[in-house]
Structure formats: C-alpha cells, structure tokens
Design a protein around this nucleic acid. Structure first.
Length: 191
DNA sequence: GCAAGGATATCG
DNA sequence: GATATCCTTGCA
C-alpha cells in the first residue's frame, strides 16, 4: 500500500488479510445485496471498499473477483516500510479529543484493521477509488524487487475475526491469512 | 474488563 | 422514525 497525498510516501507491506465472498457469505457486507455503502464491492477488482466500523474506525478492503461478483479482501494489518513519521502524525491527528496518545512501536502503527486506515489517512470518502491505476494516490503494488514474495509455507490460515454473528458455518472457515511470525499482525500467529 | 462512537440495515 | 448491531481500539 502506498500513499503520497501529502508529498510523503507512506509505504507498507500487507501482512494480514481476510477473504469475504459474495452474498452467500453471511459474514460479508455483500449479504444484504448492493447498497449505497457496498456498491464498490460489486464493481471491478482492484478498487477500494472502505467502511466505518464501530462508529470510529475506517477499514480498507480490496475488491476481488470479476465485475459483478461481490467479493473483497479486508486488509487487517500492514507492516510499515516507509513514511513512519507521517503515520505517527496521522495517529496524533486521529486520536479522539481528550484521549492521550499512546505509544506504539513502529511495527505496530498499522497492526489492526482500524489502525491501517489511520496510519494511511484513508476513510470512507476514498471508497471506490482504483488502487491499480498507475497514477493513483493510493496504490496497490507488487512487491519491490528487494522485498521478494513470501513463500506460501510462511502464510497461515485461521478463522476470521469478529464474525461470529455469521454462524459457525461461515465464521469457522479458515479465510484469515497471516504472515506467520510477523510482528505487525493484529493477533500474532506462529507457523 | 468494557465504554466510546456513528452509520447502517431492518422493523414498526 | 426508532433501535439493535457492528469485519475495533485504547483505556480502566
């Protein structure tokens, strides 16, 4: 994920995601069909779907699947690579008034779905933007040559988090994918 | 352990 | 229109 609206690139590696698959997936926002909020999910892959959760945090998803097939990938955690000062500044700006700013070690600045939106300064107003456009402000890019792709064996699948409401048939599916041992994930998993 | 926080989908 | 619920976080 890269963001350079401020002139300072914020770059990170996605280290934790969850898959949400269409209207039949009772944990997916697509389960209610197409609405004003969820319209981007029903569009082409590679676009952003952002939504507000618990009245406080903006969560980021990457639309997946063919146009008209409402599936998406929730970005649950990102390992900061560059622009950490900008991420810290965004965290200060986003803190609730009256609340103290708590210290977070660098690797934890985006270690949760709500923290990802804060660190990169992305909210619902960004929902629908194309993350694959070369000149986009927020871009999804393949790994840098100096940052080789992870081996599939280093990725662990677990249950999705916070979706018990969907029932065990869906909540029990191993559709959360985590880089094993990575310190930037929301809830560490060992291989 | 739990309050904060506001949009959303659903039900009257 | 009212309300229960929500793909969380940072406090007590």
């Amino acid at each position: 994920v890269r963001h350079d609206a401020t002139g300072v690139d914020r770059i990170g590696r996605i280290v934790e995601v969850e898959a949400y698959d269409g209207p039949s997936d009772l944990a997916s926002h697509a389960r209610f069909g197409r609405t004003a909020r969820t319209a981007p999910i029903f569009g082409p892959a590679g676009h952003l779907y952002a939504y507000l959760v618990y009245g406080m945090y903006d969560c980021l998803n990457i639309v997946a699947g063919p146009d008209g097939s409402p599936s998406a990938i929730l970005i649950r955690a990102v390992e900061p690579i560059a622009g950490l000062d900008a991420m810290r500044a965004a965290r200060l700006a986003a803190r609730r008034s009256g609340a103290r700013s708590t210290f977070l070690p660098p690797e934890r600045l985006a270690s949760g779905p709500g923290l990802v939106g804060i660190a990169f300064g992305i909210d619902r107003s960004w929902s629908g933007v194309d993350l694959l456009a070369p000149d986009a402000t927020l871009r999804l890019e393949t790994a840098h040559p100096a940052d080789p792709p992870l081996a599939a064996s280093g990725i662990v699948a677990t249950r999705r988090i916070g979706v018990e409401y969907a029932g065990e048939a869906w909540a029990g599916r191993p559709w959360r994918f985590v880089v094993a041992g990575n310190r930037s994930v929301s809830r560490p998993v060992r291989s």
